[in-house]
Amino acid sequence: MQNKLYPDDTHPIRTARIGAVCLIDVSSSGTVQFGDRGETNAKLRAIALQRQEDHTTAGDVFYESYRIFDRDLPELVDPEYADGQGVHIERVNADPFITVGYIHVTATGAASSLLCGNCMRVNSESRIMHIRQYPRPRPIPGAFC
């Protein structure tokens, strides 16, 4: 018996079908998209700085002072792919829809992506330098000093 869904009844793309979305917070440079997208290039660089000092006297902070922001990304070493012997993927969509009833998202971070649809390529990168700096606590004097 021949399967009537395959290969006669196939679909080139699938469509996301969603009942409802509840999204509370999208942080800086985060994206929410309903629909298809070709390519995403999201990039985030941040210095998370905790200092017990006033902004007026703390001075400036420079990205160039930290090597994490110009460090090269790790490369994928795959000799078979380099020789043109990678994995050939063939996809067959027997059903034209991806159905989700309800999506609840509390928060999305910076340079993040919430996509309801198809995408061809996603390149995303985040670099965060975290520094905490506190003054030395003063010693507590003894009772009979």
């Binding site: 869904l5 395959y6 793309i13 699938r14 996301a16 969603i18 985060g30 298809d36 995403t40 999201a42 990039k43 985030l44 941040a46 993927i89 063939e90 996809r91 067959v92 969509n93 027997a94 059903d95 829809f97 991806i98 159905t99 989700v100 009833g101 309800y102 999506i103 609840h104 998202v105 509390t106 928060a107 999305t108 971070g109 910076a110 340079a111 993040s112 992506s113 919430l114 996509l115 309801c116 649809g117 198809n118 995408c119 061809m120 390529r121 996603v122 995303s124 990168e125 985040s126 965060i128």
Partner: peptide, 28 residues
Amino acid sequence: KVVNHALTVGQIEILGVSSASMFQIGDT
């Protein structure tokens, strides 16, 4: 070779999508 048959999800709850990460309903 991948054959995508019916995909139906009732409900998704996410606390957070962190920096430079992604959540997608669809193909890529």
